[in-house]
Simulated scan of single mutants.
Amino acid sequence: MTIAAIFVVFPFCLAFAAFSDLFTMTIPNRISAIVLVSFVVISPLAGLDASKACLHVAAAVLVFGACFCLFAVNVMGGGDAKLLTASAIWFGFEASLIDFLLYVSAFGGLLTIAVLLLRSQENLILAARIPVPRLLLTAKKIPYGIAIALGGFAAYPSSPLMKLALTQFS
């Protein structure tokens, strides 16, 4: 049961957040809460000891500090900051956190370029009736939850909980 939860909960929440951000430009608070609470519940059941769990919490606090600063200067949305913070707890201070943040940055850059290109072709897209979410063309922000989800998917196989699950599974 614990192994199944490790394989399903975090990726499902990331996917839900990405689709929500794409279509509504919002990430529901409950998604970030589920990501955070599920780590707290699943990690001891998976065999993560208390000292390592504390390092995971410290990593999330560090990411929260950076996200709070970016939110305060209106560079990052609140939903993105909460999702990034909640996701960081799954990676801890191991190399997988760096991988996660690098993947998020790379996918975020590509996403930003793609959205800006789409917006520059808004008239053509509307005239051709290409099915693109309307908010993607009209909003002034980038649905960064998509980049966070893609970065999470890319880095998750090397995360500590996934490694624990794979050792228990084999």
Score class of each variant (00 low, 15 high):
residue 131 P to F: 09
residue 78 G to P: 03
residue 134 R to V: 06
residue 116 L to S: 06
residue 125 I to Y: 00
residue 47 G to R: 01
residue 57 V to L: 15
residue 57 V to R: 04
residue 61 V to C: 11
residue 59 A to L: 08
residue 41 V to S: 00
residue 93 F to V: 13
residue 99 D to S: 08
residue 146 I to K: 00
residue 61 V to A: 15
residue 56 H to D: 12
residue 128 A to E: 09
residue 45 L to T: 07
residue 42 I to P: 14
residue 56 H to T: 07
residue 139 A to W: 05
residue 120 S to L: 13
residue 97 L to G: 05
residue 90 W to D: 01
residue 124 L to N: 05
residue 146 I to W: 02
residue 102 L to N: 11
residue 113 I to M: 13
residue 118 L to C: 08
residue 113 I to D: 05
residue 112 T to V: 11
residue 115 V to P: 04
residue 101 L to N: 05
residue 112 T to Q: 02
residue 82 K to L: 00
residue 42 I to D: 07
residue 114 A to Y: 08
residue 109 G to T: 02
residue 114 A to E: 09
residue 117 L to I: 12
residue 139 A to R: 14
residue 113 I to F: 11
residue 62 L to N: 02
residue 111 L to C: 09
residue 85 T to D: 03
residue 133 P to R: 04
residue 53 A to V: 08
residue 45 L to M: 15
residue 61 V to F: 15
residue 114 A to V: 14
residue 119 R to P: 02
residue 132 V to L: 14
residue 64 F to E: 04
residue 97 L to M: 11
residue 116 L to Q: 13
residue 129 R to P: 01
residue 136 L to N: 01
residue 81 A to C: 11
residue 116 L to H: 14
residue 124 L to P: 00
residue 113 I to L: 10
residue 133 P to N: 04
residue 99 D to R: 05
residue 102 L to Y: 14
residue 47 G to H: 04
residue 119 R to C: 04
residue 77 G to V: 12
residue 131 P to R: 13
residue 118 L to D: 09
residue 53 A to M: 11
residue 74 N to A: 05
residue 97 L to F: 04
residue 133 P to D: 06
residue 58 A to R: 12
residue 113 I to R: 07
residue 105 S to G: 13
residue 112 T to H: 04
residue 78 G to V: 12
residue 102 L to A: 12
residue 42 I to Y: 08
residue 78 G to E: 10
residue 85 T to R: 07
residue 79 G to Q: 03
residue 127 A to S: 08
residue 59 A to H: 08
residue 75 V to L: 15
residue 143 P to Y: 10
residue 82 K to T: 00
residue 49 D to K: 14
